[in-house]
């Protein structure tokens, strides 16, 4: 394993509840992934796929059954390997007896940072997650969304190199979700490595460089967003003027013609696309855009999981 990788997992398995006469439930079944520095890594999968189990093993919250898992080149479970990780758990519960500010101070110091460092950093993070005004209220008075935002801030308080976010926008309204997405993109721009476990595929698609799809404890597909979302064969034409009779112009080429407000879409091969371009140009139509259509991540995910289960 290389020291430069942030996360390296090899043949990781985890069985819950196994015993001498009991088979137990296999939550992870030979998982292998590598996450390099500065990347945004998405972990997708239906409920019970083993995503959270994987994250918990990485953070020492659960024990592996076999295989190998490392953080920053150090075996997981070591206290020191967690010092450079910021973690926002799914459905987390922060200490209700503390205020938002105290939560950040507590967890900042629990990560080994001194009080001056933490106190200097708290206002920035409160600003970042838009919690400055409510900072001195007790956590028990916070709404779900506010708790989620303070939870995100506590994950970042010690300026970690690796940020693991488990359902970061869970329970957050659309505005808050966009704000959290913006925070993640800022982290990405700052060169932080981000590991996201989310059901919201649109977010993953927008943020992640690389995605792993898991099901029943196994990796069923992994790659970049482009690799996971294959072309559908349809091509979108954005044209000018939009009033022309496009269907007549491209008649006989490809199939599945569909008009839209700026042009049309068509299922066609490369030669048919060339011919369509020629006919449109000959008819005096300007081509403003031409896009080979891809599956979105949600479609790819559903297709992958369905195929796997079949």
């Amino acid at each position: 394993m290389t020291g430069a990788t942030m996360i390296e997992v090899r043949d990781l398995t985890k069985t819950y509840g196994g015993g001498l006469f009991k088979k137990g439930f296999r939550a992870l079944d030979g998982i292998s992934i590598t996450v390099g520095p500065g990347s945004v890594f998405g972990l997708l999968g239906p409920n019970g796929a083993g995503k959270t189990t994987l994250v918990k093993i990485l953070l020492g919250l659960a024990h592996k059954s076999s295989g190998d898992a490392q953080l920053f080149g150090e075996a997981v479970g070591h206290v020191s390997s967690r010092a450079r990780v910021g973690y926002l758990p799914e459905a987390h519960r922060l200490p209700l007896y503390l205020s938002g500010r105290q939560v950040l101070e507590l967890f900042g110091q629990m990560c080994g940072r001194d009080r001056d460092y933490v106190r200097a950093r708290v206002p920035k993070l409160l600003e970042l997650v838009d919690m400055r005004e409510a900072a001195d209220r007790k956590v028990r008075e916070y709404s779900k969304g506010m708790q989620q935002r303070i939870g995100l801030a506590q994950a970042l308080i010690h300026d970690p190199d690796l940020v693991i976010l488990d359902e970061p926008t869970d329970g957050v309204d659309p505005v808050g979700r966009a704000a959290i997405r913006e925070v993640v993109l800022d982290l990405k721009r700052a060169g932080k490595t981000i590991f996201i476990n989310s059901h919201l595929l649109m977010e993953v698609e927008l943020i992640c460089d690389r995605v792993v799809i898991m099901d029943k404890g196994k990796i069923v597909k992994q790659g970049t967003i482009a690799e996971l979302t294959p072309r559908t064969g349809r091509v979108r034409f954005d044209l000018e003027p939009t009033t022309a009779d496009f269907e007549r112009i491209v008649a006989g080429l490809g199939s599945g013609f569909e008009r839209h407000e700026r042009g049309f879409e068509l299922l066609a091969n490369e030669s048919e696309i060339d011919q369509a371009v020629d006919r449109l140009r000959a008819a005096g139509v300007s081509i403003r855009g031409l896009e080979a259509r891809r599956m979105n991540l949600e479609q790819a995910f559903i297709e992958t999981v369905t195929k796997e289960r079949a």
Binding site: R82, E90, H92, P95
Partner: peptide, 12 residues
């Protein structure tokens, strides 16, 4: 659940 995840994931 939830409280333990936050606390026990810290380097303590």
């Amino acid at each position: 659940k939830g409280a333990a995840d936050v606390v026990f994931s810290k380097p303590v």
